[in-house]
Design a binder for these strands. Sequence first.
DNA 1: ACATTTAGCAGACCGCAGTCTAAAAACTAG
DNA 2: CTAGTTTTTAGACTGCGGTCTGCTAAATGT
Lengths: 191, 191
Amino acid sequence: MSDQKAVGRPRSAEVDEKLKRAALKLVRERGYRDVSISALIAEAGVSRQSLYNRWHSKADLVLEALTDDTEGLVQLPDPARAGSAQAALRDFLHGIFRHLALDGTTLRSLIAAAQEDPAFREALRTRFVEPREEIVTALLARAQSAGELPAGRDIRMLSAFIHGAFWYRLLNGLPLDEDTARDIAAAIFAP
Amino acid sequence: MSDQKAVGRPRSAEVDEKLKRAALKLVRERGYRDVSISALIAEAGVSRQSLYNRWHSKADLVLEALTDDTEGLVQLPDPARAGSAQAALRDFLHGIFRHLALDGTTLRSLIAAAQEDPAFREALRTRFVEPREEIVTALLARAQSAGELPAGRDIRMLSAFIHGAFWYRLLNGLPLDEDTARDIAAAIFAP
DNA sequence: ACATTTAGCAGACCGCAGTCTAAAAACTAG
DNA sequence: CTAGTTTTTAGACTGCGGTCTGCTAAATGT
């Protein structure tokens, strides 16, 4: 797990930073599709090869820039604090939706990019999708133990329903707002 | 609704056919991403402009070729025949999944293309997504009237759950098989 | 017959992605 | 200090998409 290479010129951390900053800035102001690699390296002031030394594609760079920026934002909500598991789920979803007001369109583009690139699909899954899946699954499991959810319910399928509804609305251009968060939570916990 | 233009050289129906056939053939054997516009028109034996006279993009052409090919395949299942609304839903999903064994990867690419192109997103919704939504919604509504589904359940949200789970699995590269169809139907009708 | 209009074809053109080459720069090992 | 290794930069190169131009072909209307 230690550094592989103690030989050769070391990577410049500054170049990393410049590229990630340029990526976030340009993607947010022009949109993912309209940011070319050429524009990225021009904005960052680095060479083309320096980008490809670090990432395989624009999608890879933007994913890292985005996850760096939202670190520590996704965490398991406390049902006791929220009042109930249903309220905790609602608040958790609402928090995610609020954050997507800024980067939702970029996330859509990343999901799109993942469809044509298996390696990036894997990266998106491990860095973005799975952490959120685990939180929801844990929340539902706790709710089921506490009796807030009937014992017969299929936790993993309910988790797929929640994330699926989220993706479905995101990718179809439907709004993700507080009402949506409330309705999803209500439907999951419906008797 | 009648023909707009009674003047000028008429469009060749043969060119339409050649392009759609070429699109289906190449996309199925090489995959959407690896089919270039240049390869399409070469395979069809038509000019570049003839393609752009008819469709705005590769995605538009492939969508039409695909929906032409699967016409009449999506229809409202009969719960009486299947035994129950749950069985009807399971069979309906299974039928869709079976068909996607051939064109599932192409559908993923079309969904991806829709994320970067609002006009195509609309086309995909009206030609592909909404017909399936309506069938599922009608099925759930009938089931609710018949008492197979509790009266309090939110039909539209359940429909979003079903399609969302489908999209979520499709776009994350998870298998869509008979078991998945059964599990989704079971979770929707869980007491 | 003839003007008008649209479709068809071949091919030029520009911008970009992704790969590659060559040379300078920054490090380690010995 | 020297040899070896990797990063960085500048820029060339190929292939493609999408647009545009010039020309020919096939229809309509008077």
